[in-house]
Design a binder for these strands. Structure first.
Lengths: 195, 195
DNA sequence: GAAAACGCATACTGCGCGGTATGGTCGATG
DNA sequence: CATCGACCATACCGCGCAGTATGCGTTTTC
């Protein structure tokens, strides 16, 4: 039941924002009442943290599954980017939730540390991909870490643009954005692969 | 007095967030009371919009002043970027306020439209700079609009990173970020200029 | 100089919602 | 079968705060 409540919290937070949802709604969404909710969580803040953890786990599992079947380092990197871009442009819940986290993180050190940790693991993951792809000759960068940092920043920015310009959430723009990220990473241009 | 209240609202919002500040505090900051505040603004929402307008105006005036004395198109672009990067990394109030706007814009169409309009004007401004610099030979891009879009996305992402990694707010990182943005725009590398 | 309009302060209301107090049900334990 | 604790529902509290009612001094208008 705690897991179900976390999932409900995430779903509602990612739809209406932290301040747009009250505890009654979350409990109701999980099929229980507020009294039960407070048996598992001490406060709304605890529930927010639980929703964050839910998000982190979900994200990392998804990205691992997506490239589990690929062996070629270049393809692994390329496919990871493609999935990430698609998520940025199409997964509105993701966009909304991360925006909420960011704003909260500004004023809440605990939430901020959680996101820092998550983001570090994502960065390490990408650096590993880039280094492997570099050895395989699919990438030409003299500073993988710097390139990944720049690319990740761009990706976050893309998410913001998607928020304000729904028209860029098309497959045409998807490709263009992907090309941009690949250029930032120093990837050697190759024909697109199916996603 | 409305202008003073807008400025107070902006200052406090940019420090504690929209939900971290109440109307009494804003009125007090402006040296009046809530009764007076409601004489000039019909609701807290109106005040938020006023704070946004305050921000838009301030931003555009500042950027225009910064490059007013420059004539060479390449230098104009380079200096604009330098100032923008410095703002992203050092101006914490700016970061906090824009984050707040973004989160609000997700759920509020009116705020969203306001930001879209502002962002469009910023984009046009940059495209103009890039095209001029391109004619002057300081930039090599076949698609200025696309390049500016990517660069602006990266800049927003940098702001986010600055939020979570205070250590990148150093002059060393500032230069590195600047180089990254210039590369995205396709600028021909030249020795740095004093800011 | 009366009256209207403006600009502000004081005091109050209403309510949404986070949090609590309490009691009921059901399975495990001995 | 008595008891204890995990799990959940109902009902309630209280507080922060957006928004309102009202009144008072000062300026403008004719």
């Amino acid at each position: 039941m705690p897991a179900l409540l976390s999932a409900s919290a995430f779903a509602l937070f990612a739809q209406k924002g932290f301040d747009g949802v009250n505890l009654d709604q979350i409990a109701s969404h999980a099929g229980v009442t507020k009294g039960s909710l407070y048996w598992h969580f001490r406060s709304k803040h605890e529930l927010v943290k639980a929703a964050c953890t839910h998000y982190y786990r979900h994200y990392q599992r998804q990205i691992n599954e997506e490239i589990a079947h690929l062996i070629d380092p270049g393809e692994r990197l390329r496919h990871t980017l493609a999935v990430a871009v698609r998520t940025c442009l199409l997964d509105e819940a993701n966009r909304v939730f991360t925006m909420e986290i960011f704003t909260l993180a500004v004023h809440d050190p605990e939430i901020r540390r959680g996101w820092q940790q998550f983001y570090d693991s994502v960065r390490c993951f990408y650096i590993g991909l880039v280094k492997a792809a570099s050895l395989a000759g699919a990438v030409q960068t003299n500073d993988p870490e710097q390139a990944v940092n720049l690319m990740l920043a761009t990706m976050e920015g893309i998410k913001l643009r998607a928020l304000f310009e729904p028209e860029i959430c098309s497959s045409e723009h998807e490709l263009r954005v992907l090309r941009g990220l690949e250029r930032i990473l120093g990837m050697t241009p190759t024909p697109p692969i199916a996603v």
